[in-house]
Design a protein around this nucleic acid. Sequence first.
DNA 1: ACCTGAACACCGTTCAAGT
DNA 2: ACCTGAACACCGTTCAAGT
Lengths: 183, 183
Amino acid sequence: MALTRSAIVATAMAILDAFGLADLSMRRIAGALGAAPAALYWHFANKQSLLAGVAAELIADLDGPATITPDALSEWCHELRDRLLAHRDGAELVSSVLAMRLLEPTPADLLAGSLIRAGFPTAEAGPAARLVVHFILGHTLDRQGYAQSLQLGVAGPAGPDPDEDFTYGVRLLVAGLSANGTG
Amino acid sequence: MALTRSAIVATAMAILDAFGLADLSMRRIAGALGAAPAALYWHFANKQSLLAGVAAELIADLDGPATITPDALSEWCHELRDRLLAHRDGAELVSSVLAMRLLEPTPADLLAGSLIRAGFPTAEAGPAARLVVHFILGHTLDRQGYAQSLQLGVAGPAGPDPDEDFTYGVRLLVAGLSANGTG
DNA sequence: ACCTGAACACCGTTCAAGT
DNA sequence: ACCTGAACACCGTTCAAGT
């Protein structure tokens, strides 16, 4: 079969799930496709572009919350976290691609749009959305990073339950946004 | 001069500042010290341990906030962010070492301790502190990651002003904590 | 247009051997 | 105790050459 961008991205995603971001090399992707490493460079300018394609698929057809009730906001946060958790090192991949500004619309853009449509002060919707998303990324990065270091055998002792942390954080953020949106 | 752990860490820090985390290799650290790469492995078990030493120095003698007024909390957040910004890729380095649980006390531990001493509900101090720290790390990671990708020449268009985002985020978090601490 | 082969300039880590 | 030399098994990327 011919080498296509989407076949390459799908193969990369499979390697990510099976072996993690550290083992997601151009050589390994090419090997899994039965191609020479250099072949990938006809389809992607560099490794970052390829990773951007994987990250885009990871959060494909994510929408902003439909309504801005506390429950809907909280559910959206959990959905974003679950998408990141669904793939090994998902948070690290997505946050690095977001940092490069290679992924649009960003999850924060989607959330900000929903906030504005619900009457949230326009100037504050962006910063508020990025606050929420940075917490979700920071939290999930930590959680997946610990799992990664366990497998490498370099991890220190385990910390507190991440699910409790996440639920608490989302509740406090949602309460803060509600106070702001109505105030 | 003899190779010591602290001389190695200091050299690594200098390379980090000058060239960034991607160029902070064992071979380059050894080269800067006039030693063979393998020499580092007598002093550190692996690269992660060496990086943990650099991260520890980066946040050395950081204290929790002395009082838990909104101003003191906000100032502490800015201080942590400034420490991360003071070294190239500081947030990426610190968050990866934190994820491995190789750094104690963590910034979140320090903040949680201050919160508890000020009468914050004990069970919530940890989650609250980690919410704050994950936002700070997520935010700073994004900011320094964009700077990094600019230098690599793979960056997309710039986003909004990060200082405004940070100030907004800290204000909302501090308001949320105050509501919780007194409620 | 699409891909290979070979090369360039790197990595982290191990381990026998030296002093 | 502390370090070197050499090796092992890798990287991302480029580029002439093939089809």
